[in-house]
Simulated assay, not measured.
Amino acid sequence: MNSTLHVYALCVLLLFGKMLFISCYQGFFRIRHRVFTNAEDARFFQRQALPQELPQVQRAARAWANDLENIPLFFVLGGLCLALDTDGQVTAMLLCLFTGARVMHTLMYLGGWQPWRTMAYGVGLACLLAMAGLVTARIFPAAG
């Protein structure tokens, strides 16, 4: 296994852990405050189902939704970079930078900290664009 693949695998695991954290974060607030919107969950805890989630759960759900718009693109573009054997150092740097940016984005989102959340989002987006550029360069090499 090459080192870029190791980096990619580590980044995938970190992003998995981050998304698992968001799920646990939501569950923690629901259980701690015993506030549930699903009738079966509320019944299980002998509570009344409420029409709206807690603010912390809503915020975490929006962070999760943002992840679902960005992280699958990372998986695909990162996989294509590996399959097309793009520059290993550049690819590894982009993989790590994207992963760090997504972790920071989640922390900034949960904390409600601007402009840091937007900056982290922008760094992650720039990494995706750069990976797309690497893939494009391998698919359409400059005419020699």
Rank of each mutant, 00 (worst) to 15 (best):
K18W: 00
M19I: 12
M19N: 13
M19Y: 12
L20S: 08
F21D: 03
F21M: 11
C24K: 09
Y25C: 02
Y25L: 04
G27R: 11
G27C: 13
G27Q: 13
G27A: 13
F28W: 15
F28I: 12
F29I: 00
R30N: 09
R32G: 01
R32C: 07
H33R: 14
R34T: 02
F36Q: 03
F36D: 01
T37C: 12
T37Q: 05
T37V: 15
N38Q: 15
A39H: 05
A39K: 11
A39Q: 11
E40T: 12
E40I: 10
E40K: 11
A42C: 10
A42Y: 15
A42N: 09
R43V: 12
R43A: 15
R43W: 15
F44Y: 15
F44V: 03
F45D: 01
F45H: 13
Q46S: 14
Q46L: 13
R47P: 00
R47T: 03
R47M: 13
Q48F: 14
L50P: 00
E53R: 07
L54D: 04
P55V: 06
V57F: 07
Q58K: 15
A61S: 11
A61R: 07
R62Q: 14
W64C: 06
A65I: 10
N66F: 07
D67E: 12
D67P: 07
D67N: 12
L68T: 01
E69Y: 08
N70I: 08
N70C: 09
I71P: 01
P72Q: 04
F74M: 00
F74N: 00
L77F: 10
L77T: 02
G79K: 09
C81P: 07
C81Q: 01
A83Y: 14
A83H: 12
A83S: 11
G88M: 08
V90R: 11
V90H: 11
T91R: 02
A92L: 07
A92V: 06
M93Q: 07
M93E: 02
L97P: 01
L97H: 01
F98C: 05
T99E: 02
T99N: 04
T99C: 06
R102W: 10
M104V: 13
H105I: 06
L107V: 13
L107C: 11
G111E: 06
W113N: 09
R117K: 14
T118H: 06
T118P: 00
T118S: 14
A120C: 10
Y121K: 02
Y121V: 01
G122Q: 07
V123R: 00
G124M: 01
L128M: 09
L128E: 04
